[in-house]
Simulated scan of single mutants.
Amino acid sequence: MMSLAACGTGFILDFLFGDPVWLMHPVRLIGAWISFLEKRARKLCGDSDKKLLAAGVVLCVLVILPAFGIPWFLLYIAGYIHPILEFILESFWCYQLLAAKSLKQESRKVYTELKKGDLPGARKAVSMIVGRDTDRLDEAGVTKAAVETVAENASDGVTAPLLFMMIGGAPLGFFYKAVNTMDSMIGYKDEKYLYLGRLAAKLDDVLNYIPSRVSAVLMIISAYLLGMNGKNAGRIYRRDRMNHASPNSAQTEAVCAGALEIQLAGDAVYFGKLYKKKYIGDAIRPVEAEDIVRAGRLLYGTAVLSFLLFGAIKLLSLIT
């Protein structure tokens, strides 16, 4: 019951305040640890594919264990001192692990630059939230990149961590975030990360399989509730939900594209190399800057429905 209350408190704090930028985020610490381990692995393994594959396994273990174990231990100590201290600490961590408002705020920066007519500024703003190269994107490309990120992170940044926190509190939330961060840093299928990041990418696929699909269904419901094209969202979801190299990323992107009646995805450049990608959605109308705002509304609607659904299930499991 305390973990449920902590999740609820963290959810509300995230909606009200967003990420506390004045404080070092735990995920940044996890990212720094991953970078350190990657450098050590490459120094020890050289160019050996087998060694890099094995090092990837060791790296995953060395990241996941402290990401889960340290929060669990600190909560145990806090609970031993006083239950209220444990509740405050877990609530704050739940708050940090959710990213609804920060994602909306970062995407709004892109929107603001586009509305000012500052394309270079918009490219710079969107580069902060996407992994692709942005220096040659036109206005439509910048908008699509921002919308796709908001749509995908409705699951990665809200639904998935919320689900894991409802199951196992903040420690399991950190477990999820550790895997998700590894995937975002070393989970690429290019020459550099094909072996070192293989296990991290597979783990992320497994952990996000259910949350991404639950998030997609809830986003369709949100589209109806928000007066968007829910029928088209469901149609595009059924048709295009697998139009991505990842089995999970296109789930919510397809819903968003359908709800907004626009076409997303397509070819993109990463680290100077062009990657061919399938399109998601139909270009019923041209992409416009306002789609970033609409995607943010879908994000919030999906987040609220996720919390209500998972919270109800958690509460029922506690009282039965």
Score class of each variant (00 low, 15 high):
L4K: 04
A6P: 04
A6H: 03
A6L: 06
C7G: 06
G10N: 01
G10I: 05
F11L: 01
I12R: 05
I12H: 05
F15H: 12
F17G: 08
D19N: 13
L23C: 14
H25T: 02
P26S: 04
V27C: 06
A32W: 15
W33C: 11
I34G: 00
R40L: 15
G46D: 11
G46T: 04
L52D: 13
A55G: 15
A55F: 12
A55D: 10
V57Q: 09
C60P: 00
C60V: 14
L62H: 03
V63L: 11
I64E: 01
I64G: 00
P66D: 08
A67E: 03
F68W: 13
P71L: 08
I77T: 14
G79C: 07
Y80W: 14
I81M: 13
P83E: 04
I84S: 11
I88S: 09
I88D: 07
S91V: 05
S91T: 10
C94L: 05
Q96S: 10
L97Q: 06
A99M: 04
A100N: 10
S102C: 14
L103F: 03
K104F: 09
E106P: 07
S107V: 10
V110E: 01
Y111E: 14
E113F: 13
L114M: 01
L114K: 05
K115Y: 08
K116A: 15
G117M: 07
G117W: 05
D118P: 05
D118Y: 06
P120L: 08
K124E: 11
V126E: 04
M128N: 14
I129D: 11
R132N: 09
D133K: 01
T134I: 05
D135V: 15
R136G: 05
V142F: 03
V142N: 01
A145S: 15
E148A: 05
E148D: 04
N153E: 10
V158D: 07
V158G: 06
V158L: 02
A160M: 02
M166K: 07
I167G: 08
M182C: 11
D183F: 04
E191N: 08
Y193C: 09
Y195A: 13
Y195I: 02
R198I: 12
L199R: 09
L203W: 00
D204N: 02
D205A: 13
L207N: 02
I210T: 08
I210K: 02
I210L: 13
R213N: 08
R213C: 07
V214L: 13
V217W: 12
I220T: 07
S222V: 06
G230Y: 03
Y237K: 06
R239L: 14
R239K: 14
D240K: 03
D240E: 10
N243I: 10
N248H: 01
A250C: 08
A250K: 01
A250V: 03
E253T: 09
A254L: 05
A254I: 03
V255K: 02
L260V: 00
E261G: 09
L264S: 01
V269L: 04
F271I: 14
L274S: 11
L274Q: 10
K276Q: 12
K276N: 11
K277I: 13
K278L: 11
I280S: 06
G281M: 05
G281A: 10
D282V: 12
I284H: 10
I284F: 08
R285C: 06
V287W: 02
V287M: 09
A289E: 07
R297C: 03
A303F: 12
V304M: 07
V304T: 04
V304P: 04
F310C: 02
G311Q: 08
G311L: 06
L316C: 11
L316W: 12
T320M: 10
